[in-house]
C-alpha cells in the first residue's frame, strides 16, 4: 500500500542530492553574495530532507495526515458499479502514441497521425471499429480546420499535403 509513497520519497530525496550537486556547478557572480546557485541549492536541500521524511513516514503504519483525505480520493472508483480492469493496452498505446506523434509530427502530418492514434486508442477501449474510425477522422479534421483557418496555427499537413488539406 505505502510502497508508492516510499519510492517517491526516496526518488525525490535522491533528486534533491542531484540538484544540489548541479547547483554547486553554477557560476558565482563576483561581488555578490548570492548567485544563481542559491535557490536551486535551497530547493535541493528541501527535496533531500522532506523526500527522506516522506519515505520514512510511508514506512510507518500510522499516516500523520490531518485532513479527511480519504474522502478526496478517486471519486469514480469508490462508488457503485464494479470497477473494470485496468486498460493497460490503451495506457501503453497512449504513451507510445504520444511519443510517435512527437517523432512523426512533420513527416506524417497532423490529420493522418491523430486519426490513427485516436482510432486505435478508442478501439482498445472497446469502441466498434467503424465508430472509432468515424469519430477519430471527423474530430481530427474539424480541429485541423479550426486551428489552421481560424487560429492560424501551422499544423503540419505531412503526407496528406498533396490532397490540399
Amino acid at each position: 500500500m505505502s510502497k508508492a509513497p516510499f519510492l517517491a520519497g526516496v526518488i525525490l530525496s535522491l533528486a534533491g542530492a542531484g540538484v544540489i550537486m548541479e547547483a554547486m556547478r553554477l557560476p558565482v557572480i563576483p561581488g555578490q553574495t548570492y548567485g544563481p546557485g542559491l535557490f536551486p541549492t535551497v530547493i535541493g536541500i528541501g527535496l533531500l530532507v522532506f523526500g527522506a521524511v516522506y519515505a520514512l513516514n510511508a514506512r510507518r503504519p500510522t499516516e500523520p495526515a490531518i485532513v479527511p483525505e480519504a474522502e478526496w480520493a478517486a471519486p469514480d472508483a469508490e462508488e457503485g458499479s464494479a470497477p473494470e480492469r485496468p486498460f493497460y493496452g490503451a495506457l501503453a498505446w497512449l504513451i507510445a502514441g504520444l511519443a510517435g506523434t512527437i517523432l512523426l509530427w512533420e513527416t506524417a502530418g497532423f490529420v493522418l497521425l491523430m486519426s490513427v492514434v485516436l482510432m486505435v486508442f478508442m478501439i482498445l477501449l472497446g469502441v466498434r471499429l467503424w465508430l472509432a474510425g468515424l469519430v477519430a477522422v471527423a474530430s481530427t479534421i474539424m480541429v485541423y480546420a479550426i486551428f489552421i483557418r481560424i487560429l492560424t496555427v501551422p499544423l503540419p499537413s505531412g503526407l496528406l499535403a498533396p490532397l490540399g488539406l
Partner: peptide, 27 residues
C-alpha cells in the same frame, strides 16, 4: 460515451500544447 470523450480530450491536449509555441517539443 467516455472512450470517445477521452479521445477528443487527448486531441485537444495535443493541439493545445503545440499551439502555444508551435513546437513539437511542447507535446
Amino acid at each position: 460515451p467516455r472512450p470517445q470523450l477521452m479521445a477528443v480530450l487527448l486531441l485537444f491536449c495535443i493541439v493545445g500544447s503545440f499551439a502555444i509555441n508551435n513546437t513539437v517539443f511542447d507535446i
